[in-house]
Amino acid sequence: MNKKVVIGMSGGVDSSVAAYLLKRQGYDVIGITMKLTPDDAFYNEKEGGCCSISAVEDARRVAYKLDIPFYVMNFTEVFKDKVIDYFIDDYLKGRTPNPCIACNKHIKFDALLKKAQSLGADYVATGHYCKILKENGRFVIRRSIDDKKDQTYVMYNMTQYQLEHTLMPCGDYEKEHIREIAKEIGLNVFNKRDSEEICFIPDDDHGGFIKRQCPNDIKEGNFVDKQGKFIGKHKGIVYYTIGQRKGLGIAAGKRIFVTDIKADKNEIVLGDEKDIFKSELITKDNNFIPFDRLEEPMEVEAKIRYNAKVSKAVISPMEDGRVKIKFEIPQRAITIGQSAVFYKGDLLVGGGIIDEIQGV
C-alpha cells in the first residue's frame, strides 16, 4: 500500500509542483487548502494573495489536473489565536514579530499535521525550499539547493517527530526548474508571482491592520533622542520598527533612524545610523535540530532576519534557558521579536526569538 501524504496547497507554483513530485514518487496525495482568515470580505480583497479566493481556485484546478482529492479546511480559530493575536500583541509591546515562523510552528507542522494524521496520512508536505534528511539516526534540515529561495530560516522550531512526518520535495530543485516542471505538465500557475506580503494583511499596512483590530490601543506618543529629549510626535508605536528611516515625519536636517521602541513610555527613540549596530543579543524559546539542547558555547553562522546574510557568531547557553549570541561583526538593526537562526554550513542548527539586545 502506498504511503499517504496531505499537502498544503496555497495555489502557488511551489506547492503545486510539490504535489506533482510526490505523486510521481508513488505517494497517495491529498491536497488541502487551509482557510486561515476569519473575514473573507477584508482578507480576500487582494486577488492573488495566498488567502484569496483566487488562490483557492488555483489550488483546486491544480488538484483536478493532477487527479488528486482536494479539500478546503477551516483553521481560522487556531490561526487567529496562534498567529494573528500573537502578531498584534507583540507589536503593541514594541516588538516586531515574524508571523510566518509562528504559522509554521503552530499551523502547518502542528495543526495541519494532526489533521493529516486524523485522515490516515503518514506525512504532511509543503512547497517550502528546504531539505529534510536523516543523518546519524537524527532528522536534520539542510539548506535548499536554491540558495536565493531557501526557507530554512522559518523552520528552526521543528521537532524530531514533525520532521519524521514531513516532506518538502522542492528543496532538491531550483525555483526556475520548478517553474519549468509546472509549465511542462500544463499547470497554469507556472508563471504565478510569489506572494511576499503577510498573508492576512494583503495591503501590506500592518499598522493600519492593527489599528482596525484594536483602535483604542493605538496612541500618539513622543519621538525622543537617546538622552530622552523631545523631538516630535509619532502616530503609534505599531507603525515603527528598529532601523526605520522613512515615514518618520521628522525634519532633523540629517538622516535619523529608529534606534529603540519603549512601549512602557509610548516613546520612539531616534538616533544616528551608528546607533543601530549591535554585536550581542539574547534569544528565548530556542529550539535545536541536530541535538536536543545547547550544552556549551558553539561557533556558528547566524542571521537576525529572513533576508539577512549569515555572519560568524558564538552562541552560549544561559542558566535561564535563553541563549546569548555574540557576533564577530556588529549587526545592523537587530530587532526584538524577530528570530536569530543558527547554521553550520548548510546545516540548520536552530534558533530563537530575539528577546534582548546588548553590546556596542
Rank of each mutant, 00 (worst) to 15 (best):
I237M: 06
K4G: 11
Q331P: 08
I357G: 04
P290S: 06
K226Q: 15
V310H: 09
D39W: 10
N222R: 09
N157Y: 14
K312D: 12
D122L: 06
G94K: 02
K23V: 08
A18V: 02
F257A: 05
K105L: 12
I336Y: 01
L348I: 04
H177K: 15
A302T: 14
D205V: 09
I145F: 11
N286R: 00
I7Q: 04
G236R: 05
I53K: 08
Q160V: 03
Y239L: 07
I101C: 08
A121D: 15
R255K: 09
F42C: 02
I218S: 07
N44Y: 00
D346P: 09
G351R: 06
V72Y: 09
K148N: 11
T126D: 07
I268V: 15
K105D: 14
S279K: 15
Q244T: 07
I198D: 11
V29F: 11
G243T: 03
I145A: 13
I30M: 07
D14A: 03
I181S: 05
I289H: 05
K183M: 01
V17F: 13
R255A: 14
E184N: 14
M1K: 10
T37L: 07
K149A: 15
F109Q: 10
S279I: 12
F139M: 10
L348R: 12
G48C: 07
G352V: 06
Q244N: 05
G137R: 07
I334H: 06
L167W: 05
K35N: 14
G253Y: 01
F79R: 01
Q213Y: 07
V258S: 02
M9K: 02
K183T: 00
K93T: 01
G12N: 09
E220S: 13
D285P: 02
C50N: 11
K108Q: 04
P97T: 06
K131D: 00
G232P: 10
K278A: 11
L348D: 01
K80L: 09
F70E: 04
S279E: 14
E184H: 09
D110Y: 13
P215V: 05
F139A: 05
S195F: 13
A308R: 00
F209H: 02
P38R: 15
E57K: 15
D147W: 02
G249R: 05
R193N: 08
Y239H: 10
I329W: 00
R143T: 12
S316T: 15
V269H: 13
A63M: 08
